[in-house]
Design a protein around this nucleic acid. Structure first.
Lengths: 208, 208
DNA sequence: AATAAAATACCCCATAAGAGCGATTGATTC
DNA sequence: GAATCAATCGCTCTTATGGGGTATTTTATT
């Protein structure tokens, strides 16, 4: 927001951690940390009116969670970067945080010197995270296993574009009857009974 | 594959880079780099029979690309970790690499000392990448903007589970007529004419 | 107070989809 | 050489879907 110095806010319920972090950050060259909140509600009320660049957000807060707070704040404050700083590293927390708009995800045992580096990285458009957490995210891109044949996958892709039997038949140079048979086999392999669920499952399993 | 020492293979077409890297890696304590290939084809032919833990893979190779090579090798060699080591950092290369099975993605200007650290990280189940690259990946989790109301989103989710008008109506305590109206509005907002395409678009745009 | 969305409900009608059948051909695998 | 699977084509029947309307009430938003 304001040049040179990176302005930070902390949202953390533990009094001890909050004060210590604030002291360290505010005392470091190039950083200012004038604002610290013990809960999501007070952060949501104040941060929109503060000159803040980066918010360090705890996930486990009393009342509203840090993920919800991030979602709400990020909605109207696109330029502020949020770093989740937490003890939790389960997949759900990570993905929810990222979907809510977090730019970084660090564990609380990150040492202060590294934390400063990571805050700078976020400020400069990066997304710091431990390589362990990165791996979890990367694994979400993997295909588990594909029960569909090439032809079936091709047809399912055409269906996902809104085509009906006739359209698919013409595109794939097939009889509509054949298309129908393929689709029935697709449903059977995916254990579904209709197009909507087939497409949903196929995308979630990265088959299309 | 074999304990203590991490066994590395390099796939890189530039003779100079390949030799230099191999020398550095093989000369480092705890690392062995006995295999280096100038192209995808020779790597694909040899690596399945070699005791290798980590492969450093260039993307830009003559003939078959490093991404394709990774995909083919990873299919049968689940336990080998692949690190893409490249000059390209465009979104497509990153995502294709991850989908192909890469565990890390580093730029070629990474210095040797860091490279060693990153190879260790991959070997220990991490996924090293620069925080700039991490940000691109994270951005893929973001919602662009959601034209659907809460009720519409709720109904679309139920549709994606394979429900028909009647099922949705019962689940959401609505008349089937109302469900139909909502669905028509969903189609209109997403600019589609049927369920399949609606679900496809909605997932791609992270609306459901 | 006025306007715009969102949420609710209903009607008609042509067509698309899905379930349940059967069948042939050519690879691949065991 | 048998068995399996992929890919192809066909039929009937019932139900679901989507397009075309209209209309009321509630809930923001201005």
């Amino acid at each position: 927001m304001i040049s040179d110095t990176i302005h930070i806010a902390i949202v953390e319920d533990d009094h001890e951690i909050r004060q210590t972090l604030q002291l360290i950050l505010d005392g470091s060259n190039g950083f200012a940390c004038k604002y610290a909140f013990p809960d999501a509600e007070s952060a949501i009320a104040s941060i929109p009116n503060l000159p803040v660049d980066v918010v360090l957000m705890d996930i486990d807060l009393p009342g509203k969670s840090g993920i919800d707070a991030t979602r709400e704040l990020k909605r109207n404050l696109k330029s502020i970067d949020f770093i989740m700083l937490t003890v939790q590293s389960d997949d759900d927390s990570i993905f929810e945080s990222l979907c809510a708009g977090a730019s970084g995800y660090l564990l609380k045992d990150t040492n202060p010197a590294d934390l400063l580096v990571h805050i700078k990285e976020v400020f400069n458009g990066g997304s710091p995270m431990s390589s362990q957490i990165a791996r979890r995210i990367i694994n979400s891109f993997r295909i588990i296993d594909n029960p569909l044949s090439d032809r079936e996958t091709e047809i399912l892709k055409l269906l996902s574009q809104g085509m009906n039997y006739k359209d698919v038949a013409e595109t794939a140079f097939l009889s509509p009857h054949t298309v129908k048979t393929h689709i029935k086999n697709i449903y059977s392999k995916l254990h579904v009974n209709n197009r909507a669920e087939a497409i949903y499952k196929a995308i979630k399993q990265k088959l299309i």
